[in-house]
């Protein structure tokens, strides 16, 4: 399957300052991809380059195989986006706003507009002027606008900004459904870490315009439910334990760090593994699920950069 979005060595320089420094990643259809980083990391700048609002200094961004720089119209056709705040025409009704954006994509289908208004639960206020809307309602209208033309790639800059818990849950559930059922690729940026953890399949951590890490959540939370277990068999015997486990479980992913080992294993198989280790003569000091949260990893990843 080919990537819907490819970011190839993208740089952005504004007045001599390098805001984005060689970003490189791709997003596949059907996944929710997070864009995580502290304030000023360059998330919005990168998203603005993806949608052609801001020229790329060097490198290229391909959407569905089309360069946003060279074949803008073809590339942008596949994109639905909200950049920064969900700004709409305040003096027009919700419905008229959607008619406006539908016209920009070609023919207007009133059925589609009503469908989306119902979907984001704004059907009952569609004749009301957007001026009277709360931030959350505007955010939802923004999402409706972005989905109007059935894009393959949805780009949302801080989509849960200003939403109440109920709204956040709704957006999250809906984005996941779109990705899973319709194969839409979704990019969301946020600095709400817990939010990312719940919503994304993968996410990139960026700081100071550089990619620090790409995490694949499917490892730890996906269908296979491979959870990281930290097993302490005493520092001097860690090496030996790794060898022994590999003999019995050749497919397991094992990490060894600080003379402790972490295995990625399904919960149900944990007792058997531990029994096996004890039977082969290891002393078990501790064995527990490594609940290092995303937040820890995030802070870890970004602080490493700070100290260097």
């Amino acid at each position: 399957m080919s990537s819907i979005l490819e970011v190839n060595d993208v740089h952005k320089r504004i007045r001599g300052k390098e805001i984005v420094q060689g970003l490189q990643f791709s997003v596949e259809p059907g996944e929710v991809f997070g864009f995580l980083g502290p304030n000023g990391a360059g998330k919005t700048t990168t998203i603005r380059m993806m949608v052609g609002l801001s020229p790329i200094t060097s490198g290229d961004i391909l959407i569905d195989g089309h360069s946003i720089q060279k074949s803008y119209a073809k590339a942008i056709k596949q994109v639905g986006a909200i950049v920064e705040n969900p700004e709409m025409y305040n003096h027009l009704s919700a419905e008229k706003n959607l008619i406006h954006f539908a016209r920009m994509n070609g023919k207007v289908s009133h059925g589609r507009i009503d469908e989306l208004l119902d979907l984001v639960k704004l059907g009952h206020v569609k004749k009301k002027k957007v001026r009277t809307f709360s931030l959350g309602m505007k955010q939802r209208l923004g999402i409706a606008q972005a989905l109007l033309h059935r894009p393959k790639l949805l780009i949302l800059d801080e989509p849960t900004n200003g939403l109440d818990p109920e709204g956040i849950r709704m957006v999250r559930a809906y984005l996941r459904r779109l990705a899973e059922e319709e194969g839409l690729a979704v990019i969301v940026s946020s600095h709400l870490l817990s939010e990312m953890e719940l919503m994304c399949d993968r996410f990139a951590i960026i700081q100071d315009g550089q990619l620090i890490n790409i995490e694949d959540q499917r490892f730890s939370q996906g269908e296979g439910r491979l959870l990281p277990y930290r097993v302490d068999v005493g520092p001097e015997r860690t090496e030996a334990a790794v060898q022994i486990i590999k003999e019995a479980y050749p497919d397991l992913k094992i990490e060894e760090a600080d003379q402790r080992l972490t295995v990625y294993i399904e919960k149900e198989k944990v007792p058997a593994l531990l029994r096996y280790l004890m039977e082969t003569g290891f002393d078990l000091y501790e064995a527990k699920e490594d609940r290092q949260t995303l937040e820890d990893r995030f802070l870890q990843a970004t602080s490493k950069e700070d100290s260097s």
Binding site: G52, A73, I76, K77, V79, E87, M104, N105
Partner: peptide, 8 residues
């Protein structure tokens, strides 16, 4: 921003 991220 919304006006300029469409095909026209």
């Amino acid at each position: 921003k919304l006006l300029l991220v469409r095909p026209p």
